[in-house]
Simulated assay, not measured.
Amino acid sequence: MELMVLWDIDHTLIENAGVSKEIYAAAFTALAGRAPVGPARTEGRTDRLIMRDMFQRNGLAEPDWTAVEGALSDAGEARRQDLSRRGAALPGVREVLKEVSVRSSWVSSVLTGNIADNARVKVAAFGLDPLLDLAVGAYGADAVQRPDLVAVAWERARRLRGARDGVPVVLVGDTPRDVEAALATGSEIIAVASGVHSTEELADAGARMVLPDLIDTGRVLGILDAIAAR
């Protein structure tokens, strides 16, 4: 039974304790020469969209993406220790990632709006990186819209891990955008109300499976096993 599981990071695997928005503000300031007028709007958007929105709201032209990505990477690396000190892996995450990682026929990676460098910083800050196959993940520099990241991850899994056509793909995330990405691509979704969105909001977005958190390892594995067996 093969399966590809793609985990969101912020508020699904980790609590970033505000460090994410500090990263966006620092990257903006480095590029614009002044602080932004307001915080970044995140909630499941890709870094491309988040930074584009910041520049538009501040009345500035968006810089070349290479410069933006570099500024985000520098800002993320500079806050690695802050993240480790202030943030945390969410309850149950380490346990469920361990169990999924030992399923030899499964691929377990990330699908995140973060650029790859900052995704690695965030999972490594809490020792989660050995439990994820980050090489086949999809990241915020790979596409503008979140649904397009699913194909990116699938192609990497095919090329690097020999994933076969028809293998079920499951997204695990905490925002309506995670749900929308799954519905738009024919993927399965496990929505987790561990962020700012309630179980009702996630269900209203179209998620048939909504969990309050990832604490019940057996329940999460049971859901994934059932999907893999279809």
Rank of each mutant, 00 (worst) to 15 (best):
M4P: 07
M4V: 13
L6P: 03
W7N: 02
W7P: 07
D8T: 01
D10Q: 03
H11T: 01
L13D: 04
I14L: 11
I14S: 01
E15R: 07
E22P: 13
E22G: 13
E22D: 12
Y24Q: 08
A26I: 11
A26M: 12
F28W: 04
A30K: 11
G33I: 08
A40M: 04
T42F: 13
G44H: 03
R45A: 03
R52N: 11
D53R: 09
Q56A: 14
L60S: 02
E62N: 09
D64N: 11
V68Y: 02
L72G: 01
S73D: 15
D74T: 15
D74M: 15
R79F: 15
L83P: 08
R86E: 11
A89L: 09
L90T: 00
V96L: 12
L97V: 10
S101W: 01
S104I: 00
S105D: 12
S108Q: 03
S108C: 11
I115E: 04
A116K: 14
A119S: 05
A119F: 05
K122N: 08
A124M: 11
D129I: 06
P130L: 10
L132C: 10
L134H: 09
L134M: 15
A135H: 13
A135M: 09
G137D: 02
A138L: 01
G140F: 07
G140Y: 04
R146Y: 03
V150Y: 00
A153G: 01
A153M: 02
R158Q: 15
A163H: 09
R164E: 13
D165K: 13
P168H: 05
V170Y: 05
L171P: 06
T175L: 10
P176I: 04
R177S: 02
D178I: 06
D178C: 12
V179Y: 06
A182S: 11
A182N: 07
L183V: 10
T185G: 00
G186S: 09
G186H: 05
S187I: 05
A193Q: 06
V196P: 14
V196W: 15
H197S: 05
S198G: 04
T199W: 06
A205S: 12
M209G: 03
L211K: 02
P212N: 09
D216W: 01
D216H: 06
G218A: 06
R219F: 14
V220M: 13
G222T: 07
I227K: 03
A229L: 12
A229E: 13
A229Q: 11
